[in-house]
């Protein structure tokens, strides 16, 4: 009975927007707005791009239970598209990003149609194999320039108004993109659609027997996730003025898995925390003689063996009010 009251109470708080989650998001946003005065904007933008990428990935694994091991294809593939249309065709940056997102969504549709035919481990292997195909295409197609990648991509002027060549302008643009993407994911997760996805994750046969065409739901989630990963990749291409093979390798797909796992799969903020940590760690390791993949691999192993809830997941688990998921 008391449980019941508390739950209702909690729901009420969420409804009126006073939930700690919203407060946390607000505080995070404030921090992000002020951050470039304390830290390098390029570093922060890298974190934001990967955070959006990880959030997009988490939409699948955390809320639909699908492990894609091929998300680098959307991230890196979209980076090539953005770089190409902006540099070679001279498109404005906003159209470059739209093109990148759209192509990634289209690739997501194709991947999804093929991979959704199998579940679990097979799904992971199929997405991995398909993304490897994209890697070989990126290696061979003329417009991607093979090992060199597309270099010297101009950042251009956003909406003809904002000169993205200015670091702070670029930073706030990236922040806006991240916030928009994150808000979309937040809305999706809390929408009826998101509830169906969770039902599929918990028990797909039951969802089917309730009359849901689960494949459709999974496909839509996959396309949405791929599009947002593409948006992140396109943004990264503008930030670094570069699209390269690194972003389409399967190691990159693994990296986004790690960010999400480390932060907490199925939590909204986990991927952001994970991306921040991994990017920070990698830039720190770059200045030491420690081999990055070995350290990353060790974190992977430790996370999987001892720490499967991730940082945010573990915090939520230890919080007294478990309704706060």
């Amino acid at each position: 009975m008391t449980m019941q009251t508390r739950d209702t109470l909690h729901e009420g708080i969420v409804m009126y927007g006073g939930s700690p989650k919203i407060l946390l998001a607000g505080a995070g946003l404030l921090l992000a707005v002020l951050a470039p005065y304390a830290l390098y904007p390029v570093f922060l933008m890298k974190v934001l791009c990967f955070a959006l990428f990880a959030c997009a990935f988490n939409l699948l694994i955390g809320f639909a239970g699908l492990l894609s091991f091929g998300h680098a294809a959307f991230f890196g593939g979209a980076a090539y598209i953005a770089a190409h249309v902006v540099k070679v065709w001279g498109w404005a940056p906003e159209f470059g990003l739209i093109a990148a997102t759209a192509v990634a969504g289209l690739m997501g549709l194709v991947f999804g149609l093929i991979a959704i035919r199998r579940q679990g481990i097979y799904f992971a292997m199929i997405t991995l194999a398909l993304s490897q195909m994209v890697f070989f295409l990126a290696l061979q197609l003329p417009f991607t320039h093979g090992e060199d990648g597309i270099q010297g991509v101009p950042r251009g002027t956003l909406f003809g108004l904002f000169d993205l060549g200015q670091p702070l302008t670029m930073y706030y643009t990236v922040l806006a993109i991240f916030v928009a993407g994150f808000a979309l994911i937040w809305r999706t997760v809390h929408s009826p659609f998101g509830q169906v996805l969770k039902a599929i994750r918990e028990n797909e046969p039951r969802a089917v027997s309730l009359g849901y065409r689960t494949d459709r739901y999974k496909l839509v989630a996959f396309v949405l996730s791929a599009s947002l990963a593409g948006l992140a990749g396109g943004t990264k291409a503008l930030v670094f003025q570069l699209a390269s093979l690194t972003d389409v390798t399967w190691q990159m797909s693994g990296e986004v898995v790690l960010m999400t796992l480390l932060g907490g799969m199925g939590t909204l903020f986990g991927p952001v925390v994970g991306a921040g940590l991994v990017v920070t760690l990698e830039s720190y390791l770059a200045s030491t003689s420690l081999p990055v993949p070995v350290v990353i691999g060790c974190i992977f192993v430790v996370c999987v063996l001892l720490f499967r809830r991730g940082i945010v997941g573990e915090l939520l688990h230890r919080l007294p009010g478990k309704g706060n998921r």
């Binding site: 091991f69 481990i121 693994g254 070995v294 990353i296």
Partner: peptide, 30 residues
């Protein structure tokens, strides 16, 4: 290692061995 994961989702076995692959390849490359 692997033995500890038989009771949880099979995807964790895949993730663990992925981490191991990174360690082996990274170490030999280093």
């Amino acid at each position: 290692m692997l033995r500890r994961l038989y009771k949880v989702d099979h995807l964790y076995g895949l993730l663990l061995t992925f981490g191991l692959a990174l360690i082996f390849e990274g170490a030999f490359r280093h």
